[in-house]
Amino acid sequence: MKKVILASAIALFGMVSAQESETPGFVKGDTFITGAVGFTNSTQGEVKNNTFTIAPSVGYFVSPNIAVGVRAGYTNMNETDKTTSITVENESDTFAVGAFGRYYYTPASRFSIFGELNANYGNQKFTNTVGGVSTDAKFNAFDVNIAPGVNYFISKNFALEATWGVLGYSSFKQDVAGAESQDNFNIGLDLNDLSLGLVYKF
């Protein structure tokens, strides 16, 4: 399923006071906001899943072609399974922080291509409840990714953004003594890795 990113810039727009640039595109000194705000609800038979995500990002152009930034995120997932006589519930809360760098080709024009390198750290609390009895587990995660993207300005300050595919490494480990990490390398270029978003520049 495609991941459609709804920019947190929309929610933050009313909080930002800034003058519009004269022309579309990015120049040195520009700051931009993007990110994800979303809620999904799915039902398959007796299994129901609700997921809420908020993940704003802020970037700054330190040179005509290079932008650096930070991001943070929170995701809550709740799943209920009633396929048997005993109800099973799974809930997780995930917090993440990260940093990224981008190199833009023709950033001062309406259309540009960029490559992004990002590194992220997160921790997750997972609760499994079976028949009213709960057990908790905590996990730590780290990942590094490289992804290409495109940017197209639809007005002086708003742009559409798309990224797809990933070349990355991730490590996932339970937060207990002696636990072994699960390490993965990933290369993906299919449409399931497509992310669409909106960027606000000020």
Rank of each mutant, 00 (worst) to 15 (best):
K2R: 13
V4H: 11
V4Q: 14
A7F: 12
S8E: 11
S8G: 12
A9W: 00
A9F: 00
M15S: 12
S21E: 13
S21I: 02
P24D: 06
P24G: 12
G25M: 00
G25H: 14
F26Y: 12
F26E: 01
V27N: 15
V27T: 15
K28N: 08
K28Y: 00
G29W: 13
T31P: 09
I33S: 04
T34H: 01
T34P: 01
A36K: 07
V37S: 11
N41K: 13
N41F: 04
S42L: 07
S42C: 07
Q44H: 07
K48M: 09
N49E: 12
N49G: 08
T51I: 11
T53G: 12
T53D: 11
T53K: 11
A55M: 05
S57E: 06
V58H: 01
V58R: 02
F61N: 02
V62H: 10
A67F: 02
V68P: 00
G69N: 05
V70D: 03
R71W: 05
A72Q: 02
A72T: 03
G73W: 00
K82R: 12
T83E: 15
S85C: 06
I86M: 07
I86N: 06
T87I: 12
E89C: 04
E91W: 06
D93R: 07
F95P: 00
A96C: 02
A99H: 14
Y103D: 05
Y105W: 05
R110F: 00
S112I: 04
I113E: 09
I113Y: 11
E116I: 02
N123M: 10
Q124N: 09
K125E: 14
K125A: 03
N128I: 02
G131K: 11
S134N: 11
T135C: 07
D136R: 04
A137P: 01
K138R: 08
N140A: 15
N140K: 06
A141N: 14
F142S: 10
D143C: 05
D143I: 01
N145H: 02
I146K: 08
G149K: 03
V150F: 14
V150E: 12
Y152T: 09
I154N: 08
I154T: 14
N157G: 03
F158D: 07
L160I: 14
L160Q: 04
A162P: 03
G165I: 02
G165W: 01
L167G: 05
Y169F: 14
S170N: 10
G178Y: 13
E180G: 02
S181G: 10
Q182P: 06
Q182Y: 03
D183E: 15
D183I: 13
G188D: 11
L191C: 00
N192Q: 08
L194H: 11
L196H: 04
G197V: 01
G197S: 10
V199L: 13
Y200D: 07
